[in-house]
Design a protein around this nucleic acid. Sequence first.
DNA 1: CACGGAAACA
DNA 2: TGTTTCCGTG
Length: 563
Amino acid sequence: YESAGTSAAHTHAVGFAFPEWAYKPESSPGSRQIQLWHFILELLRKEEYHDVIAWQGDYGEFVIKDPDEVARLWGARKCKPQMNYDKLSRALRYYYNKRILHKTKGKRFTYKFNFNKLVLVNYPFIDMGSGRGVPQSAPPVPTGGTHFRFPPSTPSDVLSSSEELRSPGMFSSVARRMARGSVSDCSDGTSTNSELEEAVGADERGVGPERAFRGLLPPRLPHDSLFRGPPRAFPVSPLPGPGGLLAQTLSPALSMTPTPHLPYTPSPSLSSPMVGSHFSFNPEDMKHLLQAHTQSVYNYHLSPRAFLHYPNIVIPQPHRPTPEKPAAQHLHGPPLPLRHFCLCLVCGLGNVSYVEPISDIESEEEVEVTDISEEDEPNHNDDKGDFFTPMARHYHDQITNECQANRNGSSPSAPLPPHNNHDEDPDDDEVFKTPATPPVGSGSLAFPLIGLKTEPGQAAPLSPGGTRCIPLKLRFKRRWSEDQKMEADGERDEAEDKKVRAEGMEKLEGKERGRRGEEVENGAGRGGGVILGLMLPPPPTQRRASSELQRATAQLSLENTGC
DNA sequence: CACGGAAACA
DNA sequence: TGTTTCCGTG
């Protein structure tokens, strides 16, 4: 039923529900097979596999405790009985270039997802705290465990229908595709296992909508369900009144679809931002968030687009957040994600329409951004700024698109207006590129924030092809760079860069790629962000009795019956 | 054990 | 495109 779109969120384990699609393994367009990294994430989420693979110290870092077993499981899933760690690891190494992963040097069988930057940076209210050293079972959680609540009663289903995570490669690709509207339904591609899982998920879902988002996801959720969250997270469901607005307001990409997204009605009043500690998905909070976002944007001179999607939400100032870590403790997932999630959530929720045309232009910006990434100096003052990184944006877009797609129908691909399709720019640009938006109606702005869009200086609104001011880009870059630094992995991505750059170079051909330096090294941008979101472990509190069932299912799913 | 090229495959 | 398979190198 997932495919149908009904399910929307798995509230169950996770307090937070993310739309399934968000996490769904998607593969390249067309094929929906599960990808290795999705699978890894899936295993990491499940307690049953903690002896085989588990999160380790840093955010996103995991250790394969039993390589042979992991390989076996993977082989089972892919019906490749001959699979072994040597082969699996080769596949993993391919992720280096894609920046999905990188190797933790010196540690055997230890790899790390690249989402850090994104996540951390973006979610000020969540404090990652030190993730290191956290026990697997309880991966380091963001210190500022915030309580996120989804607005009660939001229907979620819409979202769920199409779920796939798109780009394995990265956010970028995902974003693009998403933007375009190519959404696919998870149902088809996913393995039977998924289905099973889904079923389970349904079980779990019973949970009420308002689950607080305390921690990260619980390990057991099926990968598919990761994001499924309660609709709340991504407001897709139609709400009365605002719904209409929402629909319009949706991100440009989304705009195509008429369906309303936001569940909550934006209220004009924005009070002080909630400080880190509590963040709920109420209209109010969301507003704050948005507002914050907006501010940050301004502060950083970012282009309006950055926050378009977030309606009146005010975000808590990063530094101030009061850390409350309530639920976070039990997280099974990597710590990072929270922030991202928040963002995503926000975005989803808040998606407001941004009038600005995103398409091509965006790409440009993005590109710029990329460059920046490396260059910039790190400013840690996140204060407001960090919130929206390009990635975040993309993520949003993605989500939105997904949502849209979902709404439209579960059918997998929802066509969006093609924008730039250069589709593939291999480069990261993608990452930054925002989905193109349909010029048209999307523009209607529902919220005040929108006005911001006109940012001083740059904002060039509108025209799809419109161009962006460079300055903004630069600023963006700064931000981006900052974010990256936030990442703080010592490791960095040199490795990543290597090839990436090379690739990029190649790619330059067609477009103006000069910016190459960009490659966001970490990839955090890309895949990472998304991933993170996916990753979030559900608050322990929610665990339910059904665990056994889940497990069983999980097992099945992992095992892949199809073969 | 890790890396990455090359070729094959779906 | 994303591995899977094989393999030489360090």
